[in-house]
């Protein structure tokens, strides 16, 4: 299976669920910004959830099926269309060779993930297939996709993918009747992000803490895969002590010297020296990944214990989903 990129859109990179083993060497985690959608796209074609996918930013992208392909997409940045026909997300799609697929902007979000049966054939670099453009490593030649890039799937399909392909294969576009209910994991339209108070939470003035937890903040245009600058009431601190650089992770919310807020995302530095007011609950990072400049978010406090329970619950649900797709479901979906 092969596709050719015709228009890559604003930024399209190949990402898996991250490069975790070189953090101590300053290597960012990277990976899909919205790992819920990337995993759902993979599961829908029978792949391992952590396989590499293409991350598209917004729409205005286009690719062509160079062979018959079995793919799935998920996320809120775009709707896949063939001519004017929209293709449904979160389920396997069979697309015959020669078909042109266009990504039309979806006002709901910003990032869309494309998985192919068998997984995209790119090499692992330092234990991950994720692209980290700054160091020019991973993904497709260490860079964002460009027109005429040819992307191949790994040839060997596992049993699940092969059975899905068998059930949809033909001469026309066909999709499964079943789909994965992504909104059950993360409700659509929710703009409230759960946060856990971070270690320097008590360094900030009471009024600022109230502002932070009650006033909407707007994602500024200075936002990318490293992080988002958020606009809203500025945050004052009364502890003037300097913080020594220490580990930070995606979801860490830092307060910079001028009192503005930065939310760190997938490509963030491994260490930072700004005091941290809060940490976004891991299950809500995908929601942040779908925000775009101009979107407003509200932060709502949650206990660390509850955040951990939500995380473990979601991971268990995804594991169960993978097992269901491997077994029961395949006998009934036709």
């Amino acid at each position: 299976m092969q596709i050719r990129i015709i228009k890559p859109g604003l930024l399209s990179t190949m990402q898996d669920t991250g490069r975790w083993n070189y953090l101590s060497q300053g290597m960012p985690i990277s990976g899909a910004m919205d790992t819920l959608s990337s995993r759902i796209a993979n599961l829908a074609v029978g792949n391992n959830a952590h396989d590499v996918v293409i991350e598209f930013t917004y729409g205005e992208a286009e690719f062509q099926a160079e062979t018959d392909i079995l793919l799935a997409y998920s996320g809120d940045g775009a709707t896949l269309r063939v001519n004017s026909l929209p293709l449904p997300p979160d389920r396997p799609l069979f697309i015959p060779s020669g078909t042109n697929i266009h990504l039309a902007n979806n006002p709901l979000g910003s990032r869309t993930y494309l998985a192919i049966a068998g997984g995209w054939d790119v090499a692992e670099v330092l234990g991950s297939k994720s692209t980290y453009v700054t160091a020019g490593i991973g993904g497709y030649k260490g860079r964002a996709l460009e027109p005429d890039d040819l992307l191949n799937a790994c040839g060997q399909l596992n049993e699940t993918s092969a059975r899905i392909l068998q059930s949809l294969k033909g001469t026309t576009i066909k999709h499964s009747k079943w789909g994965i209910a992504r909104w059950l994991f993360l409700p659509k339209y929710r703009k409230t992000v759960h946060v856990i108070p971070a270690h320097e939470f008590t360094w900030f003035a009471g009024k600022s803490v109230v502002d932070f937890l009650s006033t909407p903040y707007t994602v500024s245009i200075q936002s990318n895969r490293m992080g988002y600058r958020l606009e809203g009431p500025s945050i004052h601190r009364f502890v003037k002590q300097e913080l020594l650089s220490t580990a930070v992770v995606p979801g860490t919310i830092q307060v910079t010297g001028d009192g503005s807020i930065v939310l760190l995302m997938a490509d963030c530095q491994t260490t930072g020296g700004y005091p941290r007011i809060a940490q976004v609950a891991a299950v809500d990072i995908p929601l942040c990944a779908q925000l775009k400049p101009g979107d407003a978010v509200n932060f709502k406090e949650i206990s660390r214990t509850d955040a951990e329970k939500l995380y473990i619950h979601q991971e268990n649900q995804l594991d169960r989903l993978a097992i269901a797709l491997k077994t029961d479901m395949l006998t009934v979906f036709r």
């Binding site: 108070p197 939470f201 580990a247 860490t252 406090e301 206990s303 660390r304």
Partner: peptide, 23 residues
């Protein structure tokens, strides 16, 4: 604040960084 959970032993204090990391 009940969330500001820390755990102190002789050489260091442990605090949560995220669901998957402690400092």
């Amino acid at each position: 604040m009940q969330n500001m959970q820390t755990y102190t032993v002789n050489d260091f204090t442990i605090y949560p960084l995220s669901e998957y990391a402690v400092t």
